[in-house]
């Protein structure tokens, strides 16, 4: 096969994205337990390794060695296929996420659409898990989840419409470079309502608190994954955390200038020419990681702060608050672009 070197190159790139991602997922669980612990005036995990640093590894080993229990009369193949279907789209989306200028596996033009399409596939894993488990709680959780994800996808899609109107492109790299020119040029300011709606819809899409009704433990035990154990259970968590990191990274890319530096336009040009400090101050992958980490922290913060939404409140928020906000703001952006409102659209 003549394309063998190309295939190897792609595989290498995938490895370079997926392995740090999985490590980040493992330590996101540790960070979450620590952050929520300190918010609740506890210490959090501190037994395995120094300051509990090896806790995620211990968790992974434990989950790997546990038995996967198949419930009686469960649909065997779909039951085992469901966690895989949840995880694969969560990892596949990362193919189009740029980490710095040009650092991307697949540099495609319709990247934003690809992200939206693949993240809408994640719901299959959850629905199938609920259905194949042959359990009332699991089915209820799956149905809640399907309704919630389909509803919030609309608000999320509309928020993205605003971004692509402002940037004039579906290409993630071009969206970031359209925000060039310092912190006031990033889209969080002109698209502020869409930024808020996008992040809220993102929290709801990943089924995180306060939108975690699909797994509401006080009502339906653990929702769609109530019958899962061992590695099959772990795969759902892997998918959920990979999606959380993805939403955090996308929010940073679309609204906070991605890898652009906040000091751009504030500091004199000479500051960026300094040997090491200049590199740190200038644009680069470290800024994207920092912004992603911030939004990830907000995810944990929300979980520790807010009680769970009631189901009808959740639907009301999605359909009657978030979607109208995005619709109005799309018109506002249309006018702003039409009148060349500076400094963003001139």
């Amino acid at each position: 096969m003549p394309e063998l070197p190309l295939l190897l190159e792609i595989l290498l790139k995938i490895g370079m994205v997926v392995s740090p991602l999985l490590l980040a997922v493992a330590y996101a669980t540790y960070a979450e337990r620590k952050v929520i612990g300190y918010i609740q005036v506890r210490i959090g995990p501190n037994r395995v390794g120094p300051r509990g640093w090896l806790q995620p590894i211990a968790d992974a080993v434990k989950l790997l060695t546990k038995e996967i229990i198949l419930p009686r009369q469960a649909n065997r193949y779909l039951f085992l296929l469901a966690p895989v279907l949840a995880l694969v789209p969560a990892l596949a989306v990362w193919a189009v996420i740029p980490f710095s200028d040009g650092w991307v596996i697949a540099d495609i033009n319709a990247a934003l659409l690809y992200v939206l399409a693949l993240s809408s596939l994640g719901v299959y894993g959850i629905i199938l898990a609920g259905w194949a488990s042959n359990s009332k709680y699991a089915l209820l959780g799956a149905m809640r989840s399907a309704a919630q994800m389909v509803s919030y996808e609309i608000a999320m899609g509309f928020a993205l419409v605003g971004v692509l109107m402002a940037a004039g492109s579906l290409h993630l790299g071009q969206i970031v470079s359209a925000q060039q020119g310092g912190i006031w040029h990033w889209y969080w300011l002109p698209l502020l309502p869409l930024f808020v709606v996008y992040f809220i819809a993102g929290v709801a899409e990943t089924n995180r608190a306060p939108f975690d009704v699909p797994e509401g433990e006080s009502e339906i035990v653990a929702g769609f994954h109530v019958e899962y154990s061992g590695m099959a259970f772990a795969l759902f968590f892997l998918a959920e955390y990979a999606n959380m990191i993805l939403i955090a990274a996308l929010t940073a890319l679309l609204f906070l200038g991605g890898w652009l530096s906040p000091f751009e336009g504030l500091l004199p040009e000479a500051a960026f020419a300094l040997p090491v400090i200049g590199w740190l101050l200038g644009p680069g992958i470290h800024w994207l990681l920092l912004k992603t980490a911030f939004f990830l922290f907000v995810f944990f913060w929300l979980r520790a702060t807010f009680p769970r939404y009631r189901y009808d409140q959740l639907m009301r928020l999605g359909w009657k608050v978030l979607i109208p906000v995005t619709l109005v703001w799309i018109v506002v952006i249309g006018l702003a672009i039409g009148f060349n409102l500076g400094p963003w659209f001139s």
Partner: peptide, 26 residues
């Protein structure tokens, strides 16, 4: 035709079939 391909996944797989599956299951 990557635009059409992605839209096919987004609309039919991501939205229409989810609701379809929902109805069939219940």
């Amino acid at each position: 035709a990557e635009f059409l391909g992605i839209v096919l996944v987004l609309v039919y797989v991501g939205a229409v079939m989810v609701l379809f599956l929902f109805v069939v299951m219940t």
